[in-house]
Amino acid sequence: MQELLQWVEACEADAIDEEDVIRFDHGDRTFAIYRTAKGSYYATDGYCTHEKFHLSEGLVMGTIIECPKHNGRFDYTTGAAKRTPVCVDLRTYPVKLEHNKVFIQI
């Protein structure tokens, strides 16, 4: 079955500090939205793939998000798992910026 994708407004562009992350909930789904030091935006699933901890409470370092629970790491631009204990990649979502608002395609 093909998923029906839609662009959803997530937040104001400056709601996220540089090199930081916030949580965005939509319906019963939850996401993490990132802003790099250079001002690009990315989005991933909200929960870590190891246990159910929200990545928006973790630390952003360059293009890495570190999970707050056991310090597993992902590259949030690709979703790739980068450090134990996580071994399952994170799902990522397309992001666009329009009129100073961040939209994600989910």
Partner: peptide, 11 residues
């Protein structure tokens, strides 16, 4: 709470 302290400990 984990959510409140984890990031600061990491820093």
């Amino acid at each position: 709470l984990n959510a409140k302290i984890a990031k600061d400990i990491r820093l």
